[in-house]
């Protein structure tokens, strides 16, 4: 399985990447939505994208809308991973087409639980 980790914080990209690598994912990352679209346009379309909200150049919500507009990318599951934690913001992201939403701060267990819900946990991870 492949994952694209999109976050403007290098530290956060490393944290999320290392969690996903631990679950057996092949991971690439991007510092904002625009960079992430470049990766997709190369033809590297992952099973999962984890998406920060507040980023320079192109924010997470714009990225979600851009992905939704392209039927070729429909198979990709989009999971927001963001410090935006208001009720209305979560509703907005889901309405725009995000499949799941993890609020920062999160633990590795939270990511694992969400992937399990999405059927995207490639390895049987023992609790």
């Amino acid at each position: 399985m492949r994952a694209l980790v999109i976050d403007d914080s290098r530290a956060m990209r490393r944290i999320v990447s290392s969690i996903l690598t631990g679950f057996g994912y092949e991971v690439r990352d991007a510092g904002h939505g625009g960079e992430a679209l470049e990766v997709l346009n190369e033809g590297w379309v992952p099973d999962l994208a984890t998406i920060d909200w507040n980023m320079p150049v192109m924010d997470g919500l714009q990225f979600v809308s851009a992905v939704r507009a392209n039927p070729a990318w429909r198979s990709m599951t989009m999971m927001m991973v963001t410090s935006e934690s208001e009720h209305t913001q979560i509703v907005r992201a889901l309405a725009a087409g995000a499949h799941e939403y993890v609020i920062k701060p999160f633990t590795a267990d939270a990511i694992r639980d969400k992937l399990a819900l999405l059927g995207l946990l490639p390895q049987e991870v023992v609790l």
Partner: peptide, 29 residues
């Protein structure tokens, strides 16, 4: 590295604090 990681802690703490405030607010980088 320090600017990035230390800044991300402020982002996460700030995001949670913002969510407890009334009405809608925007968060800076």
């Amino acid at each position: 590295d320090v600017v990035d990681a230390f800044g991300e802690i402020a982002n996460v703490v700030g995001g949670s604090i913002k969510a407890t405030l009334p009405g809608h607010s925007a968060l800076s980088l």
